[in-house]
Design a protein around this nucleic acid. Sequence first.
DNA 1: CCGCAAAAATGCAGACTCTGCAAGTTCGCG
DNA 2: CGCGAACTTGCAGAGTCTGCATTTTTGCGG
Lengths: 201, 201
Amino acid sequence: MTTGLRERKKLRTRRALGAAALELAVRHGLAEVTVEQIAEAADVSPRTFFNYFSSKEEAVVAADLERAGEMVDRLATRPADEPVLESVRAVTRAMLGEPGARRKEWVRQVRLVRANPALVPHQLAAYAAIEQRLAAVIAERAGMGADDLYPALTATAVMAATRVATTRWLDSDGRTELADGIDEALDLLTTGLGHPPSRAP
Amino acid sequence: MTTGLRERKKLRTRRALGAAALELAVRHGLAEVTVEQIAEAADVSPRTFFNYFSSKEEAVVAADLERAGEMVDRLATRPADEPVLESVRAVTRAMLGEPGARRKEWVRQVRLVRANPALVPHQLAAYAAIEQRLAAVIAERAGMGADDLYPALTATAVMAATRVATTRWLDSDGRTELADGIDEALDLLTTGLGHPPSRAP
DNA sequence: CCGCAAAAATGCAGACTCTGCAAGTTCGCG
DNA sequence: CGCGAACTTGCAGAGTCTGCATTTTTGCGG
């Protein structure tokens, strides 16, 4: 087992801090929340907070980073001969299907980011970190290096597709299905962006 | 004319601050530079610095934001019946061709970002701002709304392509031509990411 | 040319962020 | 058990960033 009591406790603390940050930010507004409050809510000292995150923004975004990381992990387990974008499709649908309380948490977080432009840079930074890992997975599939153009570009494009679809879904305010939006975006990437899609079917 | 003396002076101050921030960061390392030093170098008070930028990171990245904005402006002047990705190609080549001292400045800046991960979020935030405008231009071309999927996704994808190509170009350390890399990336987007490109020609 | 109202720049106080360092505490391995 | 590594914590200090009141510039109409 890779999980000593030590590691588990650290993870719990980390999550507690992230959750507290999100909770407080949603309730009082990001700007009104101080690191001291977050630390107190998670029952650690302010100094300890900074041992885990370098800012409250990072803490708020941490859960999403973890989530995206899990997505890449799952991607790595898909059959190697499946086209990459198909794998993404499958994993996305799977993750969107399962959710319990985590999904609600995620939606709150995404909404918070929209409401606080100050969070955007941090969210993007988190995604950028994931992109690296995603590129590695794609590269392996394609039998290329992680720094070849195709894997790198595909990784960013996939993240972009997800982001755009998510944004549109939020804007639609429940009138669309997120998984469908992501499918549509992935379709566009698959067939190429050379021309606008012909009129809706 | 839209440019009163007032506006011009403001722009000059803004640029002076950005340039000073970049210069100092390159010379002494980003972490070693304080807002006070930047302000002094630009001959304004520290307080004034914050009237223009909300952090030194933002100041460092400002020039690139301006540059990207110019790119979108030029894009808007291309013939409306030209395929979007072709327009991007043309504008990119044009801007990469012209440069005088500005290009060197840009390269320094991009290198600085690579060396300081702390800048990544800010760089990405700048690009995200541009994406909005880019999406609007693309939407107009395609006769769609700026929040339709195609324009939004294409805009992010184009930015992503540029970013990836730039990164790869930097890594290649002068052994490749940036414009070629961007072309290649745009080709991929045009033909679709469904399959890895067949072996090199 | 003059003087005025708007726009900018500035100084200052104060709250908060974040880091290094030097203790304490806790955990798990032998 | 008992020790060393890993964590947490407190503290001091430099720096960031904001609001507010004040002073300086600038553009304009008379």
